[in-house]
Nucleic acid binder design. Structure first.
Lengths: 219, 219
DNA sequence: ATATTTTTAGACAGACTTGTCCAAATCGTC
DNA sequence: GACGATTTGGACAAGTCTGTCTAAAAATAT
């Protein structure tokens, strides 16, 4: 364990903790009330901080939004990367392992708090602040698709799948995995684990009907 | 052509025209700026109407939102119904006809102006005003899914498809059709017809790989 | 223990909005 | 042409919110 004390910042500890607390509260309020409807007094209260502190840290309301988006995107990218690493490379029971992977993907990336925030901010501010999400737009979905496509191509090469265009297959896999959750997520319902498992099972079954091939370890 | 003069309303023509104009402008502004950020002066200006007229017609800002949502939902429901009626019942070239159907679905329901409005309003106001969309939530997607499922079941019965659960298949069909468009739509990019066709072709190809069966009229 | 930085609470001006009121003007109808 | 309803533009009060300022308090580092 590196003791990792940021050397530059002078009074880091509680200072940084408050910074994160503010960003979290701001994310919540921005998502619930929209940018224009977000009240900085409310954000400060929810963060357990005086209003002035909010201004000290982030200056502008606009600037606060920028910080929020930046933070959320970073977290989401990390989560996606982490989850993608658990893709079944050498499957024994491909269907079961793909289902488990799909469930993890939903849990960690799509139905998670940050996933919800990013989705909501994209919809409410995406059109108005394209620059805010420009970086994510290329580094996020594109890289995710490419990474997933590479994994799928590997499985195809190993004889598990038959895929012509791995990129298309990757996007379709994600689309199928989300098919049943969209509606629930829009209304902020919390999706039960049961639902997630059913949804993932249906998705993977259809995906394998389309792209599955030989099953070296058939039961 | 029916001369169709609405008999009940006393001063219908320009009055009703203004009503729609206001709702359209309000939809645009609500979607762009969010409810809190929407400025009634701006709505009035965009509708080509004085602010007082907006208040005369709809009273409250809240009330205006209700009217907008109601109108959009009605239009969307009509569009979906109309498009569903063009589902290929007695296909000759199933793949081509499903692709054409998918393109129509995207054009008329998802990428259309109203489709964009509904999606945006759902995301921005869905959680805060669940009652607003409660009606749609059951009459909209549920009915669409059921109708599409029935059509698919018919095709299955006719020997074109092999489907266990038509409801799941219907949702997955829609998910596949939208797979490539989500990202573009979030940012308000206008999707080219070329993109729509490619996307639909990919979707249908995968769908048929999963559920397609015999092809009575093979080329 | 002291010095420095951060935080707090409150007050404050300025700007912006909503919703109402009203008299004049416009429109459609008879 | 006259009448009634609708629309208009402008003014208006009430309220809210942002962003700044200040002096006191708290926390941190030396």
């Amino acid at each position: 364990m590196t003791t990792a004390i940021t050397p530059d910042i002078s009074a880091p500890r509680s200072h940084n903790a408050k910074r994160l607390s503010i960003i979290d509260a701001a994310a919540r309020v921005f998502c619930q009330e929209g940018f224009a409807g977000a009240n900085i007094d409310l954000i400060a209260a929810e963060a357990g901080v005086s209003r002035q502190t909010v201004y000290n840290h982030h200056g502008d309301k606009e600037n606060l939004l920028v910080a929020v988006v930046k933070e959320i995107i970073e977290r989401i990218n990390a989560g996606v990367f982490e989850t993608l690493a658990t893709f079944p490379d050498k499957p024994v029971d491909l269907e079961a392992e793909l289902v488990a992977f799909a469930v993890r993907l939903n849990q960690n990336c799509i139905c998670s708090r940050d996933g919800k925030f990013l989705r909501k901010l994209l919809h409410t501010e995406g059109e108005r602040h394209p620059k805010l999400f420009a970086g994510w737009r290329e580094d996020g979905p594109a890289k995710t698709w490419a990474a997933l496509a590479a994994r799928l191509a590997r499985l195809a090469h190993a004889g598990w799948l038959e895929i012509e265009d791995p990129d298309v297959a990757a996007r379709q896999f994600l689309a199928l995995v989300n098919a049943d959750l969209q509606m629930a997520m829009i209304f902020g319902d919390n999706v039960t684990e049961e639902q997630q498992r059913t949804s993932a099972t249906n998705a993977v079954r259809t995906f394998l009907r389309a792209f599955g091939k030989a099953r070296p370890n058939a039961t």
